[in-house]
């Protein structure tokens, strides 16, 4: 995962419904993945689950959380860079029932 929410988050919640992978949760809310429930990563503001974030590769031309965030607090995580291939592989894993087309400028921020 290479997108995270900084402490500038004002908890407006605009990002949560935009995520195609349901990777975003409100602070203090437990997150779910593959049938398991996990403790919240942040209790104070919205957070992105690394295992579920694909930076919108496979879905959109740019990260949707960042696009709707009014305070620019959904940002690339410099400590966790990931390749397009890795992110696309994760997208396919998260959505096994979906037929993904080859990546293009419309479905990957890496191809602007």
């Amino acid at each position: 995962m290479a997108t995270f929410i900084t402490e500038e988050c004002i908890n407006c919640g605009a990002c949560e419904p935009e995520c195609p992978n349901t990777a975003i949760y409100a602070g203090g809310v437990q997150w779910e993945f593959q049938g398991a429930t996990h403790d919240a990563i942040s209790n104070d503001f919205y957070y992105i689950v690394p295992e579920k974030c694909t930076e919108c590769v496979g879905h959109f031309e740019k990260e949707q959380c960042a696009a709707v965030c009014p305070v620019d607090c959904c940002v690339p995580d410099p400590n966790h860079p990931e390749t397009e291939d890795a992110l696309f592989a994760r997208a396919k894993q998260l959505h096994p029932d979906r037929a993904f087309t080859d990546l293009s400028a419309a479905t990957s921020r890496f191809r602007k």
Partner: peptide, 12 residues
């Protein structure tokens, strides 16, 4: 917070 909320609504 209220100011941001109103302006955000407009900004969208």
């Amino acid at each position: 917070f209220e100011a941001h909320d109103i302006l955000e609504d407009f900004w969208r």
